[in-house]
Structure formats: C-alpha cells, structure tokens
Design a protein around this nucleic acid. Structure first.
Lengths: 343, 343
DNA sequence: TGTTTTGACGAAACCGCTTTCGGAGAAAAA
DNA sequence: TTTTTCTCCGAAAGCGGTTTCGTCAAAACA
C-alpha cells in the first residue's frame, strides 16, 4: 500500500492533523516537529493525494481547457495552440495544471461542459473557439465557475474574455492598402457563425467607406471555416463571378494561403496582380512564397493575459475582466510593399 | 450547496449505496428503482464528483501528458502536437481525459514526474520527447504506472513505446538519392542527446555504405535541436569547412527549412545545386518553395496506436507493447525528382 | 408445508486529507 | 502564587463517493 498521510503521522509520532498542517504551512507547528515530518516525507517519497485534497477543500488546482464549436479547433490549430502554450506556462507558474476535456461522443457527459467542469471540480476554465456562443458554453458562462474566453465574448458574472481588436485590425489593413494605392479591396472571411470573422468584415467595410472607397459585394466572400480550402474556394468563386479585387484581406493566414494557391493556379501573381494580407501570423507565413504579410496577434501576450485574468477571477470578485489587445501589421512580401520587408 | 449522491438518495427514498450502484451499472437493482433515480439525477442535474470516485476507487480516468526534456517541446511542436491530437481523440473514445502537467519551476513537485502522476493518481501517462531518457523519466518508467513513450524507448514493466522506424527511413532516403544519381550525401541532425537523431544518422551512414558510397564526416553535422536555426547553422558550418554535399537528409522538416534558407542566402538553388529531404511531414512542407520532400510519419496512426497500447497496459498485463511504424517517403520538389511531384 | 434460492436493497467501513475547536502545559503577567 | 496568555498539538467530523456483506421478502423447489 502506498504511503499516505496516516503513515507519515505514525512514523513521526504525531497526529494526522499535524502532518496536514505542515503540508499546508500552518503557523502553529514548532520548527522541530516540522523538520522531523518533512524529513520523513522525503524519505518515504510521500505525495499527497489531490483527489482527497480536492474532496476536502473543493479546490482541485486544475484548469479545464475547452475547445468549443464544430470548427475543428484543436491542438493542430496554429493560432490557438500558441495562445494555449503561453497560457499553460503562465498557469504553471501560478500552480495550476491543465485538464483537456475530450469531447468525443462516447463520453459520459457529452458536450455538457458545465457538467465536465463540475465532475472534475476544476477551479476555472478557458474556452477557445472561433465561433459564436453555443448553448452548452452559455450555460457554463453563466455558472459560478470562473471562465475566460479567447476570441469569444463571455458575459457571465464570473467570466471574462480576451481577444484582439478585430475591428481595428481591419482598419489597419485597409489603411495600408489605401496608402499603397489599392482601391479595389476584397475580403475573404470564415463562416458567418464566427463572431471574429464577422467583426473583421464589419471593420473592413467601415474602413473602406471611411476612405471613400466603394464596397463591391462580389469581393466579399465567406468560406466554411478558417482553413486553407476556404480561401481556395473563395478565389474560385470570385473568378467565376467575373472579377477580382486588387487587394484582399483574409480572415486567417490559412485562408490567405489557400487563396494564394488558387490565384497561382489561375496564373495570377501575388502581389503584382493581387495583394494579400492574412491574419494571425502563424509560423507558416514565413515559408510561403511570397512570404505572407499578415496581422500579428500577440499570442504570447493573449495567453499570459488569459491566465492572469482567470487567476483574478478565481481569487477575487473582480469584474473588469475583458481585454482587447492591439493587433500589429506585419509586412512581408504578399502585400505589395517592396520597400520595407521584414521577416 | 451542490447536489450530491446523498441528496439524490434522499429524494429517491433509497440508500446512497443504491444510487452508487445505479451510477455504476450494478445488476442487482430493479428497473423501477433505476428509472426513478435516473429521473431525479436528470432533474437535479447531478454530476458525480470525480475526486470522491478517485479517492474510493483509485482510478481517476485521467491520463497524464508529459513533455519531457529541454528541447522546448510543447504545444507548438508541429510533429508531437499532431500525434497528441490523435491520441487525445482516441483516449476520449475510451473514456479518458488528458491532464497536462505544467513543468514550471514554481510548482510543488517540480520535474518529478512520478510524483505528479501519483499526486493526481493518473491511470496512465504518455511521454513525448525527442530526447534521451532522463532520470525523472526513468523513475516513472520503472514505476507501477502504465506509461507509453512516443519517440522514446520506455523499458519498464508497465511501459511501452511507439516510434517510426528511424533506421529504415534513412535507408529510404539514401536509396532515393542514389537512384536519382546523387553520390555525395550529407546529413543534418539534432543534438547528440536525441536518440531519434542518432538512430537516423546511424541508419543513414549504414545505408550509404551499403550502396558502396563514401561517407564524408564534414557532411554530417548536428545542430542543437530540431528547429530551424539548427539547419541554418549547419549549412553555414559545411560551407565554412569548404564543401557541400549534393544531397542532404535533415532530421526534421524545420531543420530542412533552415538549411534551405541558408543555401538560398549563399546563392545555391534547391534542388538544382543541393537536393534536400526533411523529416516529419509537418504542415509547413507544402508552403515552402520549393515544396519540401520529406519522410512522412503517420502521426494520426502513431497517436491512435499510443492510445490503444496505453489502454492495454492499463487493463491487462500485456507485455508486447512497443510498435515501430513504417515511414513513407513523400516526394515534392526539394529532392530533385521532377518526375513525380505530389502535394 | 418447510426449505433453499434468488432478487433487491441498505448499513457501514473506508478512501486520504482538511479544518475547527478545544485542551494541556509552559511562559508571561499580575 | 495565581491568573492570563501563548504555543503546540490532537480529536473528530466532514468531503462524496464505492463496495462488501448481510438482511429480508418473494419465488422456486422438494
């Protein structure tokens, strides 16, 4: 049988409560006792059981991670995965570990995120998704469990969210295109079910108008998701419809990559014939040719902020818990600016 | 107060044991009682506590995920992340959730993986690393906890591992180069602390010799890790040393990408001057120019196999628990074969 | 009719840890 | 010397489940 707190207590000749107090740094224990018990714990390789602790304290020091939505967002998603990586690191410093709920069918409490959270008694959770709020997320959002959303607006009492300024990033793109002399601007978005994409599109249109340019609906097309195929098909759709804009903002880098592929297949050159700016600044941008200009989202910062916001939510009743981070235009080769190319 | 098993029992007018039996599908409960209790559980939204269950049964239905080593392997690693994604999916089907240990300094039981596993009472764990076995991994490996390693040879009684046939993949590369007429072959590996890289190098050298070709030590250089910079610097080192091979096998795609960048900067063309084959088949291969030929590791299969091996380890005393999967040569543009290009 | 088997359920111990409350004894204050 | 104040520690009641074993009535058997 594995060594437990009782074993330690007996070996040290003290009570179980004393050992527990030592583990939890209570002050009413003499240094001698403390030393003796610590010594024994070390010798025996004692490790306290988290389930017993959780059962007693209702704190698990676990953070639930939820990939929500049907957009196939998972570990392989280049943007979220980097955010999550930074989040994990920061949560680690704060003493938490991450629990990834698998959302497979066969599981007991399928899709019911709140139930999963209660089941494991997570202290808080992070929800990543590029999609709108679905019922099971909303339920969790309005529960007592602290949640923070990445790229999804959580409005519950104990929730917060963090996202890039999607409206402003579009403005920056339009501004750049405008200053480079482009007047015929197009946009490739993701599914209409994505708030993110919708915000970007709205910002883009508003910006175009604020520069006094016309908006051609044919040049605004939305794909099914944020992946390559959406961009590929969008270009084909535009071409079928008879005309192509001179510059395109894509709602994700993968969409942009797909679009470039389609353009290339049709004999168009990027950026000479069509300029393109993507969004997210994933790794692959550097490897495409031409290298993809993009809107950089500070994934590291987003992850860190998400962690500290969640930490606050878990430890106080703070209310101001949503943050919008400033996006940054990264100019490479695909957007037609030959003057200042950076890697 | 949240509803617990006692609440349910009282509401249903039965004992706690009866409710527990119903939850766990015991057979000695009448259908009527079962129905009544189920109804009440549904109405109240009852969710059993996993910690209480774990405490009583010593089964947590949690799988620990360990990113081991100092090679900076984490969520952002293109190869492991895909393996993990497939692993997660499969484990989900089997009814398990994933626990990611954060290995940050401030944490209670730092680096001591066995302790973390015991702490959370994970039912098993998966270890991913490109590195050799370190002491804390070895300790876990030889514990009673079922572990399976990806790209790391675990030898413990309750362990298993899965990896690609690193020896054979090198042979395939050499064979391809040979058949294309290349005779001057080089290799760029990762740190010598990586078993994977070492196996590939060994296989590569053996293959070269088996084709009756000479091995030039100057053309074998090892970087610090599996990332881009290692490839970049390796090329520079070769150039400094005075000569370049005509064809290079890189131990990872990122290394290959870095190597291509260095070659380009020095005015060499790929594949006309130097042919390159990478390894892993990460997403980025398709986006480089020229598109990177590579050895594809079946990441999906590796993940699934890892899951089922681990499942077996957890549920039986099976011993045959290591699998080597067959790698596949994917020919794109960087290896000089203009005849059969595939995407 | 008496006996055994079966079906359905409950009592209670246990899993490992936390935390409140109180008590004993020593030290300090009166 | 008596009283008060500390210091250090333990008893015991949870936390929310699981599981063994026993009970008891009804059904099956002889």
């Amino acid at each position: 049988m594995s060594v437990n707190i009782k074993t330690i207590a007996e070996m040290a000749g003290v009570s179980v409560s004393t050992v527990s107090k030592i583990i939890n740094n209570y002050s009413d224990i003499s240094v001698e006792t403390k030393a003796k018990v610590h010594e024994i714990m070390k010798q025996t390789g004692y490790v306290p059981s988290n389930s017993a602790k959780t059962l007693a304290t209702k704190k698990s020091s676990l953070i639930g991670v939820i990939f929500a939505g049907k957009l196939n967002i998972d570990f392989t998603h280049p943007f979220f995965v980097e955010v999550l990586n930074s989040f994990k690191k920061q949560m680690g410093f704060l003493g938490y570990d991450l629990l990834f709920f698998s959302n497979e069918k066969s599981h007991a409490v399928d899709g019911d995120y709140l139930a999963r959270c209660r089941h494991f008694q997570v202290d808080g959770c992070i929800i990543v998704t590029g999609q709108q709020v679905e019922p099971s997320i909303s339920e969790l959002d309005h529960s007592e469990i602290p949640c923070i959303g990445v790229d999804i607006e959580l409005k519950g009492k104990s929730s917060g969210y963090i996202m890039s300024d999607n409206y402003k990033m579009s403005y920056k793109v339009v501004e750049h295109f405008y200053l480079q002399g482009y007047r015929e601007l197009g946009y490739i978005g993701s599914t209409l079910e994505s708030d993110i994409s919708n915000m970007r599109e709205k910002g883009y249109k508003d910006a175009i108008e604020s520069f006094g340019l016309p908006v051609f609906d044919n040049w605004f097309v939305n794909g099914e998701n944020f992946f390559e195929e959406s961009g590929y098909e969008a270009i084909n759709k535009m071409i079928e419809s008879g005309s192509l804009p001179r510059a395109i903002f894509a709602a994700s880098d993968l969409i942009a990559i797909g679009a470039m592929r389609a353009l290339k297949e049709h004999g168009f050159r990027v950026p000479e014939d069509v300029a393109i700016i993507g969004c997210d600044d994933i790794e692959a941008c550097k490897y495409t040719s031409p290298a993809l200009s993009t809107i950089r989202q500070n994934k590291d910062k987003i992850g860190r902020l998400a962690a500290s916001l969640l930490f606050d939510l878990m430890n106080t009743q703070s209310v101001t818990s949503n943050v919008v981070v400033e996006p940054e235009l990264v100019i490479r080769e695909s957007c037609g600016n030959k003057l200042k190319v950076q890697l």
